[in-house]
Design a protein around this nucleic acid. Sequence first.
DNA 1: ATGGACCTTCCAGTACAGGGGAAGGTCAAG
DNA 2: CTTGACCTTCCCCTGTACTGGAAGGTCCAT
Lengths: 129, 129
Amino acid sequence: MRIGELAQVSGTTTKTLRFYEEAGLLPAPERTAGGYRDYAPEALARLDFIRRSRTAGLTLAQIREVLDIRDAGVAPCQHVQDLLETRLGDLDRQIADLQALRHTVARLRDDAATVDPANCDATTVCRYL
Amino acid sequence: MRIGELAQVSGTTTKTLRFYEEAGLLPAPERTAGGYRDYAPEALARLDFIRRSRTAGLTLAQIREVLDIRDAGVAPCQHVQDLLETRLGDLDRQIADLQALRHTVARLRDDAATVDPANCDATTVCRYL
DNA sequence: ATGGACCTTCCAGTACAGGGGAAGGTCAAG
DNA sequence: CTTGACCTTCCCCTGTACTGGAAGGTCCAT
């Protein structure tokens, strides 16, 4: 399978595939006589895994970790569980931070909405922020 | 006031102050005979505004917009209200996205937790993702 | 044999908000 | 007079996940 075809069936781009290879997420494939990359069908499953992992919010570095463990011949299940657990903690923290920020911004907006703009003057920057 | 002192009282760094000047957030200050930046006390209020705006999640580009309006002699109140409103919408969307992702990841983790790792084999990447 | 689609490598840039460090100038104290 | 703290400009680097484009090679049909 050539790179363009793999890009199409995996729903990505040739640029991304070369980038993943460079980044150590995809093994370097065989080459044809003419120097073209020639992917084995397994590459698609690997790309699906990468896509699903990205959807779960894992970084490429984290995905590479999992793939490296698998490539070493070990089932990465425990590592994946740990990663998901960590990711869940990150998400909870991130959501809590954003909600706190939302309260702050909502408060600022409410304050700003109750004031007659005619009372503003340009010499101070802006008292709402 | 020299740059190091302003950095200290504003709780930032000299690098950041030069960067803000370069980015158009801080006006170029006077220079001493020796070529040192010599800030007027007003710079501190401006930096406080920038800090508060950053805390509210505004980007430097958005803050620059507000400051430009003010520097043109117009009270930027309405603009600030609009920005805060937009920012609130962004936050709501971002929080909703993260919560959806949290559900997905929690589901993945729960699935992963109920399975005996001994049943995993290394030939597939990992069926949890 | 030639056109066009596809591929190759390599270099550079995107957005964000600065940080690191070199080479050199300034200023006050000792 | 020299030391040390502070300042100047300059350019490159950080991390994330790609994206764009140039110059050139390959392959297949016409």
